[in-house]
Amino acid sequence: MEAVLSDYDLYLKGFALTVGLVLVSGVASLVFGALLAAARVGPIWVLSKAASLYVTIFRNTPLLMVFIFVAIAMPRIGITFKFVEEIAVGDWSISAFFFRACVALTLYTSAFVCEAFRSGINAVPLGQAEAARALGLTFTQNMTNVVMPQALRAVVPPLTSVIIALTKNTSVAAAFGIAEATSAMRTLGNRYGDQVVEIFFFIAIGYIVVVELLALGSYALERRWKVASR
């Protein structure tokens, strides 16, 4: 108990970093994943195959391997992302470690985001688009009024799963020099060897809070967008 209370600072900083990683790499992988999905379902054969190759590679590589590529292998060929440390907003700047972790998480998560979007689009029955065209709607009207609203609703649950997985995956950054929540547990555990169980539960509760907040947010979106269907 006292371990967490006396080092409350470490605990809070750890979760602040975890949330920071989730926000930055979450937004980045939503954008990149959406681009991938566009290439994946688009009419250009080559782009579709390239996106599918990307998804296959990154879905089958452990996240830790992606981290090793970004943090250990890429510096060998001169890509260290050191330049981000030059950028400073006021007295606040990003460390290269944080940036690398975000790059690795984004590369990995985008593959899953792409698949989530694709499954959302596939969930729209073909007859919907056909009916819309038969009624004389133009392509744009068809997209904005018929296909996308349905795809967007279908995409919320799988996308939430992906973002929740991302939240848990940020823990891997602990192995690469980021003092986020899991690494905070290791530090605290080393410091107070006799209180490991309490420390573990405290950190676990922190993760559960973040994950449940995401789940509740998604549930609220679902409720809000729900249409009287069937």
Partner: peptide, 18 residues
């Protein structure tokens, strides 16, 4: 629900430390 919401690495490290 508990084990699904907690990162595997946290579980692993917890077990290892304990």
């Amino acid at each position: 629900e508990f084990f699904r919401a907690v990162p595997v690495l946290l579980l692993m490290t917890g077990l290892w430390l304990a």
